[in-house]
């Protein structure tokens, strides 16, 4: 589905990502983990085609993402960015409808019946149908993130990139969003999510990708990646890892 080939990328002369090779298969659910500044957001921006690699390629379904037409790309890959600052003057319904823009021709400015049905569907899928007329800026953090997810789904993507979907959310909303995302994954949507919470990553994702200083440190299942020594070294802290009694997945605890 999406493949990085010897990828170098950054901003201007600065190189953030240093030679990444990676593949996420169709239907996969991968978590990007790593300390602040390790290049997670930059990687999302590169995978979405926003940044042009300094070297190497991002291949999506056999095509170089930087050579795909913008609209084509937006129909295949949807990105949910860190949207806490979202203040555009729209109501939820108008906002979600923006996800349909990639499907509109140059001279289309008004939604058709299919767009309306789809918006309807993603609103109920994300459980925010009742908020449709509410202005975005009146929403709580959790509701806003749901609206953001609904907009990404309105793009009918094959790949969904999430940049810290659970940041600043309470535990209830964290689980709500992650459950929704896992449901979508079960239905066949490929997902790559930047996650700060290692335990959420362990709980929900099939594959963890540990980034450190722009390089991939380790890729694999939660049990493979979440090893005490590796995590301690990469994050520069001391943690201990125990097995979750219910799921028998590794859980990370900070220690003083």
């Amino acid at each position: 589905m999406i493949k990085l080939e010897n990828l170098f990328c950054g901003y201007g002369k600065k190189t953030v990502l240093k030679g990444l090779n990676l593949e996420v298969r169709t239907g996969g659910f991968a978590a990007l983990i790593g300390p602040n500044g390790s290049g997670k957001t930059t990687l999302v921006r590169t995978m979405s085609g926003l940044l042009t690699p300094q070297k190497g390629k991002v291949i999506f379904d056999g095509k170089d993402v930087n050579k795909m037409p913008h609209k084509e790309l937006a129909k295949k890959i949807a990105v949910m960015t860190q949207a806490q600052t979202l203040t555009a003057p729209f109501c939820v319904e108008e906002f979600v409808l923006l996800g349909r823009i990639p499907y509109w021709g140059r001279f289309q400015v008004v939604e058709d019946k299919k767009d309306i049905e789809l918006v309807e569907r993603v609103l109920s899928r994300t459980g925010i149908s009742h908020l449709r007329q509410r202005p975005l800026k009146e929403l709580s953090g959790g509701e806003r993130q749901l609206a953001n997810l609904a907009r990404a789904l309105a793009q009918e993507p094959d790949l969904l990139l999430l940049d810290e979907p659970t940041a600043h959310l309470d535990i209830g909303h964290q689980v709500q969003i992650m459950d929704l995302v896992r449901d979508l994954n079960d239905k066949g949507l490929t997902i790559v999510a930047v996650l700060h919470d290692l335990n959420l990553a362990s709980l929900y994702c099939q594959k963890l990708i540990l980034l450190s200083d722009g390089k991939i440190q380790k890729v694999g299942s939660a049990t493979d990646v979440l090893e005490q020594e590796v995590i301690n070294k990469v994050y520069g802290t001391s943690i201990t890892i125990r097995q979750d009694p219910v799921t028998s997945l590794p859980f990370v605890f900070p220690v003083h």
Binding site: R45, S48, G49, L50, H70, K71, E72, L73, A74, K75, I77, A78, V79, T81, L86, A88, P89, F90, E94, L98, G99, I101, P102, W104, R106, F107, Q108, V109, Q155
Partner: peptide, 24 residues
């Protein structure tokens, strides 16, 4: 302006978001 009004809506979310919605 009217022809570009849907793209302007996308752009009012920010340039990065607009790019992700397929706007050039």
């Amino acid at each position: 302006s009217f022809i570009y009004s849907a793209d302007l809506n996308a752009l009012s979310l920010g340039e990065e978001e607009a790019f992700h919605l397929g706007v050039r």
